[in-house]
Amino acid sequence: MPGLETRFSGTVPENYDSGLGPFIFERFAEEMARRASDLHPSSVLETAAGTGIVTRRLRDRIPPQCALIATDLNCPMLDFAALKFDEDESVGIEAADACRLPFDDGAFDVVICQFGVMFFPDRGASYAEALRVLKPGGTYLFSVWGSWNDNPFGRIAYSVGAEFCPNDPPAFYKIPFSYHDAGRIRSDLKDAGFDEPTIDTLTHRKALDDPALFARGIVYGNPLGEELVERGIDPDVVCNRMAEALRAQLGESMPVKAMLIAATKP
């Protein structure tokens, strides 16, 4: 999506963190941080770090002497992430393109990316860059969403947007769920030069205890809200309809499914 990096500004980071984080990101972030810690790295790079949901958990788990750098294209998201750390905590926060990383070859033991690779305009380049900055034997840990069928909140988000724009529905909520074929992921990583990856499926049910907060995250925590304004549609009206649809179709809890991939540099 051209210009996507410019649409995560204003109140988007706050709504992303508070409205999406507790519902769909935090549990997977904890698992990602645990797996990274189990590798006992001395240096970690995170790409597409967003508001630092994974970064905060990484810093809590890995030893203080382990270097940690969090990067993202979106400076407002990184500014929000920086607020999660005290001045004496060792976290580097830098704006960087995952497809053109500004780091030396072999600089990191682990590279991490939670739910970011689906958005990269050149996925092959992003894999090549992750491989380049890893030390030999280093690990690339990343996660992707399952399909709409496995994550009905994504289908609902798209469908509600389509109710208001039936002739040209906002397309954002197609992107996150577009890269879930394990065979394709394996092939793409091997083409980039990684060893055969391991792919684990992680599934859980998340309590939908505040549909209105989740709906606000879905609309205002992503480019959808800005796109609705550009089309002359009141995002608050869409939020109300989103919350209603989430309650009606999901009830008190929802299934959430992701894939966590670990690929090693030879």
Rank of each mutant, 00 (worst) to 15 (best):
F8I: 01
V12E: 05
Y16P: 06
Y16K: 00
D17A: 14
A33T: 09
R34P: 03
R34M: 01
R35I: 03
L39P: 04
S42I: 05
G50S: 08
T51Y: 10
T51F: 03
I53T: 02
R59A: 03
A67G: 07
A67E: 11
A70V: 11
L73H: 06
L73Y: 08
N74K: 02
N74G: 12
P76G: 05
L78V: 02
L78K: 10
D79N: 11
A81I: 10
D86L: 08
D88K: 06
D88N: 08
E89T: 01
E89Y: 06
S90D: 13
S90F: 02
I93V: 13
F103W: 12
G106H: 11
F108M: 12
V110R: 12
C113V: 04
Q114I: 08
G116R: 12
V117Q: 10
P121N: 06
Y127H: 13
G137R: 13
Y140V: 05
S143A: 15
S147D: 06
P152G: 05
A157C: 07
E163L: 10
P166V: 00
F172T: 04
F177G: 00
Y179S: 00
G183K: 11
S187R: 15
D188N: 01
K190R: 12
E196C: 02
T198M: 02
H204L: 09
K206R: 13
D210I: 09
R216K: 11
R216T: 14
I218P: 02
P223W: 04
E226I: 03
V229N: 07
E230I: 05
I233G: 14
D236R: 14
D236A: 15
D236L: 14
V237A: 15
A243S: 15
A248Y: 03
A248T: 02
G251W: 08
P255R: 07
M259Y: 14
